[in-house]
Computed example of a mutant assay.
Amino acid sequence: MSSINIILVHGAWADGSSWAKVIPLLRDKGMTVAAVQLPLTSFDADVATVSRAIALAQGDVVLVGHSYAGAVIGQAGNAPKVKRLVYIDAFAPDAGESAGSLFAKFEAAPLNNEIRPDAEGFLSLTPKGIATLFAQDLDPAEQTILHATQGPINGAALGGTLTQAAWRSRPGFYLIGENDLAILPVEQERMATRMNATIKRVASSHVPMLSHPLVVADFIALAAAGCQGDGNMHNGRLFQE
């Protein structure tokens, strides 16, 4: 696995530290790991940040995105170095779609009621949103830290559309949080099925990388393993432990 680079991309209301529990597990598996820090000021700026990380990688890349970052990796992942895409409770837009356009079509979006805009159009989550809809399976101390360190996202970034969806030409892997109240599991299932992704499910909130880091790390390792063997052998299969 030493030649495989894992690039972890956080979503809205987060930063690179949201992968803090997963990074050492991946490194213990012999992988080279980088977690980007998205500016969350615009979709283009976020894609550019990930593209820079891909350019610095020596060798093949497995690109991992959580939540909003599913849209970001869907665009940045068209770089030739990127061999696999891993979606963690993430939006998976096609060309011409955005995270926001998918969210608007969802049957229910309870998180909407706990999003607060500021005067410049940046969106934040309320403490209640963190505790009851975003990270309800974390302890109160972790929830408090998440709220205090959240990265507000410019609302316009959610409207950034893909020009080409990388999952159309690369194997995709999708981890569904069965207790996710931010992106409901039924919506995740639809996106993952459309991608013909390898699917795994975990009894988690919207932040399985914090509540179930071992499951997340093992799933990323599954995607990385495909880079060194039959490149498509896992694609489109339901993965069971």
Score class of each variant (00 low, 15 high):
7 I>Q: 09
155 G>K: 01
236 G>Q: 04
3 S>P: 01
61 V>Y: 03
171 P>K: 11
145 I>E: 08
34 A>Y: 08
181 L>W: 11
109 A>V: 15
39 P>K: 06
104 A>K: 14
236 G>T: 00
155 G>E: 06
30 G>T: 05
118 D>N: 15
67 S>A: 15
127 P>G: 01
194 R>V: 00
135 A>W: 02
212 H>C: 02
94 D>I: 04
81 K>I: 01
143 Q>T: 01
240 Q>A: 12
83 K>N: 06
123 L>F: 05
110 P>T: 07
112 N>D: 14
191 M>A: 14
3 S>W: 07
37 Q>Y: 06
136 Q>I: 00
120 E>D: 14
38 L>C: 10
138 L>R: 09
152 P>I: 12
229 G>T: 03
19 W>C: 08
144 T>P: 05
56 L>I: 09
57 A>L: 02
194 R>Y: 03
95 A>S: 11
178 E>Y: 01
93 P>C: 12
84 R>N: 07
98 S>E: 01
186 V>Q: 09
239 F>A: 15
103 F>K: 10
107 E>V: 10
226 G>Y: 08
69 A>Y: 07
73 I>D: 00
126 T>N: 13
202 V>A: 03
18 S>W: 04
233 M>A: 14
37 Q>M: 10
69 A>I: 01
50 V>P: 02
227 C>Y: 04
153 I>Y: 13
193 T>G: 12
89 D>T: 14
181 L>N: 13
176 I>G: 05
119 A>H: 12
184 L>V: 05
200 K>F: 08
168 R>I: 03
164 Q>I: 00
236 G>S: 07
46 D>E: 04
99 A>S: 12
79 A>L: 05
151 G>N: 14
32 T>I: 09
150 Q>K: 06
46 D>M: 10
200 K>N: 09
105 K>A: 14
144 T>E: 07
106 F>Q: 14
202 V>S: 07
114 E>M: 14
5 N>S: 10
219 F>I: 02
115 I>T: 12
193 T>F: 07
46 D>P: 08
84 R>C: 02
122 F>M: 13
87 Y>L: 06
209 M>K: 11
86 V>F: 02
13 W>S: 10
32 T>C: 13
85 L>Q: 05
126 T>M: 13
108 A>H: 13
224 A>K: 06
138 L>G: 03
89 D>C: 15
65 G>F: 05
227 C>Q: 01
161 T>H: 12
191 M>S: 14
174 Y>K: 10
64 V>G: 12
205 S>C: 06
183 I>V: 13
10 H>D: 06
96 G>P: 07
139 D>Y: 01
31 M>S: 04
222 L>R: 09
85 L>G: 10
125 L>N: 11
104 A>R: 13
234 H>L: 14
96 G>F: 10
58 Q>P: 05
31 M>P: 02
9 V>W: 02
35 A>R: 07
138 L>W: 04
209 M>I: 06
86 V>D: 12
